[in-house]
């Protein structure tokens, strides 16, 4: 995650006219880059292109330093706080 603002839900309002980052002007905004890549995903499965528009929950900082692969396998990285509402119909896995 190279977004200097550690944003998880797309580009902030500070993206420059040339698509570069508000904080590091010589770097392309990582969300602009991610968006371009999502648009170039295969047409099927459709979800591959659409997932970039899904609302991601707040980061679980308690997992910092853990193995992300292990957390992917055991599902820990998909656990959300009990009060997180999110957008249900768009978060189906």
């Amino acid at each position: 995650m190279t977004c200097p603002k550690t944003l998880r839900n797309g580009p902030c309002g500070g993206v420059r006219e040339n698509g570069n980052c508000e904080v590091i002007p010589e770097m392309q905004c990582v969300w602009v880059k991610a968006n371009d890549r999502a648009e170039n995903m295969p047409l099927l499965p459709k979800s591959w292109r659409e997932e970039i528009s899904h609302l991601r929950p707040p980061v679980n900082n308690a997992l910092k330093g853990d193995s992300s692969w292990l957390n992917l396998v055991n599902g820990k990285d998909r656990e959300t706080p009990d009060g997180w509402i999110g957008i249900e119909h768009k978060e189906a896995h």
């Binding site: 902030c12 707040p58 509402i85």
Partner: peptide, 16 residues
């Protein structure tokens, strides 16, 4: 800088 939440997440948290 903090950004523990981002704008869309904050909307959801405030809605909660």
């Amino acid at each position: 800088r903090v950004f523990d939440l981002d704008g869309p997440q904050l909307i959801s948290v405030a809605t909660g």
